[in-house]
């Protein structure tokens, strides 16, 4: 699948391939031998971060599993 930054798509494919193999063959089997794709990920992530900045995509400051916390509140009030 394409990256939001066209120039990152090739790096992403390379990383995805590495990750998918690691995920199925190691991670799901509970092997903790470390992630062999870290370097590929770093290179790809640097590219994406630049693209996100250039495109002004508002990803900064969003909590992990973010709105789920506020969700419980709005559930109570609705």
């Amino acid at each position: 699948m394409n990256s939001v930054g066209e120039e990152c798509t090739d790096m992403k494919r390379e990383y995805d391939q590495c990750f998918n193999r690691w995920f199925a063959e190691k991670f799901l089997k509970g092997e903790c031998s470390g992630d062999p794709c870290t370097e590929l990920f770093r290179r790809y992530r640097d590219c994406v971060q630049k693209a996100i900045k250039d495109k002004d995509i508002p990803v900064d400051g969003v909590d992990f599993m973010g709105p789920s916390k506020s969700k419980t509140e709005s559930d109570g009030s609705s």
Partner: peptide, 26 residues
């Protein structure tokens, strides 16, 4: 769970234009 990471593109995902991994940690 393995397919979850590989599901785009597919013939029913024409509304999905791009996909990126921003963060990953074990």
């Amino acid at each position: 769970s393995a397919a979850f990471w590989q599901r785009y593109p597919n013939p029913y995902s024409k509304h999905v234009l791009s996909e990126d991994i921003l963060y990953r940690e074990v």
